[in-house]
Amino acid sequence: MGRPAPSHTPERVRYTVALAQLAPRLGEVDANLELAAGWLRRAVAEGAQLTAFPELALTGYLLSDLVPEVAISAADPRLAELSRLAPGTLVAIGFVEETDHHRYANSAALLRDGELIGLHRKVFLPTYGLFDEGRFTRPGDRIRAIEVGEPMGRIGLSVCEDFWHASLPMLQAQDGASLLVNVAAGPARAPGSAAGLRAIAGWHRMQDTYALLGTVGIAFCNRVGNEEGLTFWGGSRLLGADGSVLAEGPLYEEALVVGAFETDDVRMQRYQLPLLADERLELVRREIDRIISERAGLPGPWAPGAPESPESADEPAG
């Protein structure tokens, strides 16, 4: 009753996000760095606090055996130099990473003031239909949220197909992310037809659902342009934590898509819809362990004939 709000109540902050929906040049890392620099300067002029570039923005997508030729280390000074063009702000960008152990990954780096503050290696490499990623790059093995400081707290970074697996965004939301940044290189199929629109609608439904269920913002940056016969569709989107569309880019055309994310919306949304807090991670873990064991044919307390649950097994007899 009339008490002042606790001093830690965050102030309402508008956080400006820019999505650089550009068309990289296939295999030309230095040309793409220069291209990205131009877009980053524009994003800074628009007040962006986070600028996202697409998947493989430094290399292009259909690389095949070009992978080792275009791969760079996440510690490459050229990445640091790019990010210094946007002082005090975050830059997320996709590239081919060569690790210290010469493992090649489709990675996204999160940088600020020349410092690499986070790295995500694409976990789900599509190798079906028109995709052949698993042949040329190796999957990442970590799904984490990245601490970036106030006002966003933590950010979840992912690459394109990663978003077609609900486990990844939900884990990142559980890991504390208030914004999920997905960088993509999505090729169009059946443009404009019902099938093509369904493919884009699929992306939209998925993003809307993750925003809703994860009570997180979504920043989706998809490239445009052509490689071989593929046309990448763009349509980058920024969503609020309630799933509202804050900004949306055009299809097929280059565009700097800028929108403002209200950090206070996450707070209010999570009070109204405490889904993350209500999640039963210990239960999820136990059931996942069970499924893994059963699939592998391993013995476990859930094997046929075993007691109903590990808890009941601990109960004293009688």
């Binding site: 296939l26 443009p191 404009g192 019902a194 052509n226």
Partner: peptide
């Protein structure tokens, strides 16, 4: 019959041709 949006299709194909020439 397979349907399609002719206007978007034309946009995509014209972009494909321009891109092949440029590349």
């Amino acid at each position: 019959l397979p349907e399609l949006d002719p206007v978007q299709t034309i946009e995509v194909i014209a972009g494909f041709i321009r891109s092949q020439l440029e590349q």
